[in-house]
């Protein structure tokens, strides 16, 4: 039960809360503001916060100069592709572990978790060499494979915790009601599992979208997603802050919105169900 809090106390918390919140959010806000400035205003000192000539030209420039749209498509294809393939592989596995667990189920889950603890740099060399020899460097398919594999443990785990929450009574009721296994899956299990599958999808798209070890090491120009593309602005000649801001805003905006929707699932997914 929420207790009555005095208005004064509430006001104090409001001031502190908003101050801290805006401070933490400031770098993002600043990036968004800068993206609407001209390059001159972007580096101006003293900086202008709101009173500048708002312009959209950076957004147009980004596309013209660097084929921005190609990198957006790469990010979309790679993050959704790896997530969909991951789900396809993980759903049967998580299903089996949740509904007909064996003595080894727990061990397998723990082992899957342990693969997530493997530092990527430990397998950088062989993966790089295999990719080089297999023609997978700087290809979308190559990145989809890597990201599918590194996120597979999280996908299996998340699905497992969601599937396990589906009461077995309901599946038994469906069986008593005369549903065949196929109909049980179509009419009962999938509708009940969809929220969990959707959350898993969301979180993994976010993780894949922001992955910046393999995407930086395994791509050059063709398959580079936004993470790698933005990194190219770090070179001195890339010091165009307004354009960098426009590119960054576009790169983070969609995922920020998705992220805001998936806060709860994020906790569950990234702590492997240890905190719900």
């Amino acid at each position: 039960m929420a207790r009555a809090v005095s208005t004064k106390q509430k006001l104090v918390y409001t001031v502190i809360g908003w101050t801290v919140g805006l401070l933490i959010f400031f770098p993002i806000l600043w990036t968004i503001l800068t993206s609407f400035k001209t390059e001159g205003e972007a580096i101006a000192s003293p900086p202008s916060f709101v009173l500048f000539d708002w312009t959209l030209e950076n957004y147009a420039e980004v596309q013209v100069r660097s084929d921005y749209f190609k990198h957006v498509m790469n990010s979309i294809i790679i993050s959704f592709g790896s997530t969909f393939i991951g789900l396809l592989i993980a759903i049967p596995a998580a299903w089996a572990m949740a509904f007909s667990p064996t003595k080894r189920t727990k061990d397998i889950l723990m082992w899957m978790l342990s693969t997530k603890m493997l530092p990527p740099v430990g397998v950088l060399v062989p993966i790089y060499l295999i990719y080089r020899d297999g023609g997978l460097l700087d290809t979308q398919i190559g990145l989809i494979i890597v990201l599918t594999m590194i996120n597979l443990p999280i996908i299996v785990w998340m699905l497992f915790t969601y599937f396990k929450d589906i009461p077995s009574d309901i599946l038994e009721a469906a069986r008593m009601d005369g549903a065949s296994l196929r109909k049980e899956i179509i009419h009962v299990l999938i509708p009940m599992a969809i929220p969990g599958i959707a959350s898993t999808l969301l979180l993994n798209v976010i993780l894949a979208w922001n992955e910046a070890f393999w995407t930086l090491n395994l791509t050059a120009a063709d398959a580079a997603p936004l993470t790698a593309f933005i990194a190219s602005y770090s070179s001195p000649e890339g010091l165009f802050w307004a354009k960098l801001s426009a590119a960054s805003t576009l790169a983070i905006a969609p995922i920020l919105v998705l992220g805001w929707f998936s806060q709860k699932q994020l906790v569950r997914g990234l702590t492997f169900g240890a905190v719900k």
Partner: peptide, 11 residues
């Protein structure tokens, strides 16, 4: 407050 988590490291 949660927003920075969703910003890609390179950005």
């Amino acid at each position: 407050v949660v927003a920075p988590f969703f910003v890609m490291p390179t950005v």
